[in-house]
Structures are given as C-alpha cells and as structure tokens.
C-alpha cells in the first residue's frame, strides 16, 4: 500500500490546482499575519478560511479526484491488489497531499507567526477538517454513480455543514430558549465537525468568554483538558466514520 500511496501522492502534488491552492493559502496566511499587527486577528481571519474555504476545496477536489481516477482505480482493481489497498491508498494519498498543502499554506506561517498553543490548535483543527472532508468526499463518491452527482452531493454536504447547520442550531436555540439547552447545544456541536473544530479553537482564543457561560456542563467542558480531548476524539471519529462506511460500500461496489 505504501508504494501505491507514494504514486498517488506523486501524481496529486504535481497537480496544478493543488500547487495553486497551497500558494493561495500561503499568500493568505502570510498576508493575514503580516498586515495585522495583532496575531490574534490573523488567527481569526485564518479561522474563517479554515471554516469555509478549506472544507469547500477539500470536498470538491477530493470528489473530482476520485472520479478522475476512476479508470485508474479500475485498472488497479484488475491487478492483484485488494479493494482495501486501492481505497485506502487513494484516500491516504489524497489526505497526505491536501494535508501537506494545508500544513505548508497555513500551518507553517501560523507556527512561525504564532507558535503558541492556540496556533497549534488552529492548525490541528484545520488539518482534521481537511481529512474529514476528504473522507466525506470519498463517501459521497462511492455512493453516487457519476461525477456530477457526486459533486452535487459534496457541495450539499459543504453547504449543510458550513452554512446551514449553525443557522438551524440557532433557530432551535431561539425556539427552545425556555428549556435548558446546555447539554443539547454541546451535542449539536458534536454532530458537526466544523463546530467541533471551531470550538477547539474557541477554547484557546475565547476561553475567558466561554467561562462566562453559567452552567456546570459548559464549565466542565470548557475548563478542562477533557473538553479538548473529547473534541479531538470526536473530530477523529468524523474522519474515521465516513471513510470506514465509504470503504464498506467501495469493497462491494461495481466499478
């Protein structure tokens, strides 16, 4: 598998789009940190990129890549190679390539300009978001029959996770304002990887504000390393779960 991943990675990192994406991220990150005297503001601008642009690029690029590699996947599956090796070498190859693009484009400047815990959390969160959306894209690709549909599904997932979901949560919170929604609101955020990543970063950037929310559940969650730990584990689950279901489907899929 390792060797196959190597070739997948070799192919993707020479992709013009991926190179452009890396450079764009690098340019954005450096300019955010350069032009804002306060690294805090740079981090916040990057957070917005991580929550909107990176998921979009990751999910769309992965879907397109999957379908562009379809004939190649077919060819591989005619080789003495298991479906598992094929699927995971594609997945890991893509994760590695987009992960590197993110780490070079965002990780490196962030750690240079703000090598603190919050910078590290931001980078880690963004990396996990990238992986999550690659995983979701793979799932979307294996359940659909053609590229256009798969891109449609991928876009819908992005729109739902990045835009719609929080609006819906807000509506629920507004309508249920008379009920204790403390636990529920934490559960809501666990159900969306974007929210998890965002809250991880909040725990670094806005801990003083978070500590202002009265309520034992919040206090416990936000003040302890447990909260950070749980969020990371849940985010990892958000990578593992779709990729696992994707694999289950792919292993029985007719190519």
């Amino acid at each position: 598998m390792k060797k196959t991943i190597k070739y997948v990675v070799y192919d993707i990192i020479r992709n013009r789009f991926v190179i452009g994406y890396t450079l764009l991220l690098l340019l954005l990150s450096v300019s955010f940190f350069w032009f804002e005297a306060d690294p805090n503001k740079g981090l916040l601008s990057l957070l917005n990129i991580i929550l909107m642009v990176i998921p979009l690029v990751s999910v769309i690029f992965s879907t397109i890549h999957f379908y562009n590699s379809y004939e190649f996947i077919e060819l591989l599956s005619a080789q003495p190679m298991s479906r598992r090796t094929i699927y995971f070498s594609q997945f890991l190859g893509l994760c590695f390539s987009l992960g590197m693009a993110f780490l070079i484009g965002v990780g490196l400047p962030t750690l240079i300009f703000d090598g603190s815990m919050r910078g590290l959390t931001l980078v880690l969160g963004g990396l996990l978001i990238t992986l999550t959306l690659v995983a979701i894209a793979f799932l979307a690709s294996v359940i659909t029959k053609d590229k256009a549909k798969a891109i449609g599904v991928a876009l819908a997932v992005w729109f739902y996770l990045c835009i719609l979901y929080d609006g819906m949560v807000l509506m629920v919170l507004v309508n249920m304002a008379d009920y204790p929604m403390e636990k529920a609101s934490l559960v809501f955020s666990a159900l969306n990887p974007m929210d998890l990543a965002r809250i991880l970063v909040l725990m670094q950037l806005d801990v003083s504000a978070l500590m202002g929310i009265t309520g034992a559940v919040f206090q416990n969650f936000f003040s302890s390393t447990w909260g950070v730990f749980i969020s990371f584990v849940l985010l990892l689950l958000w990578v593992i779960t779709p990729v696992f279901f994707g694999y289950r489907i792919f292993s029985k899929k007719d190519l």
Binding site: K3, Y7, Y10, D11, I12, N68, L76, Q79
Partner: peptide, 29 residues
Amino acid sequence: RSEIGYMPQIGNYPPNLKIAQLIDMMKDI
C-alpha cells in the same frame, strides 16, 4: 489476478505520473 494481464478499453492514468513511474508502480504491485 497476478495471473491476469488486463488491457482496458480506455486507459486514463494519473495525469502527472510519468510512464516510467506507472510501470515501476505496476512492478511494485
């Protein structure tokens, strides 16, 4: 499948790989 050689109708390969790399990869597999 190590006993099978397959020539597909449409050969669409990873566009940024070189022929030599594709052949090396198949050998690796």
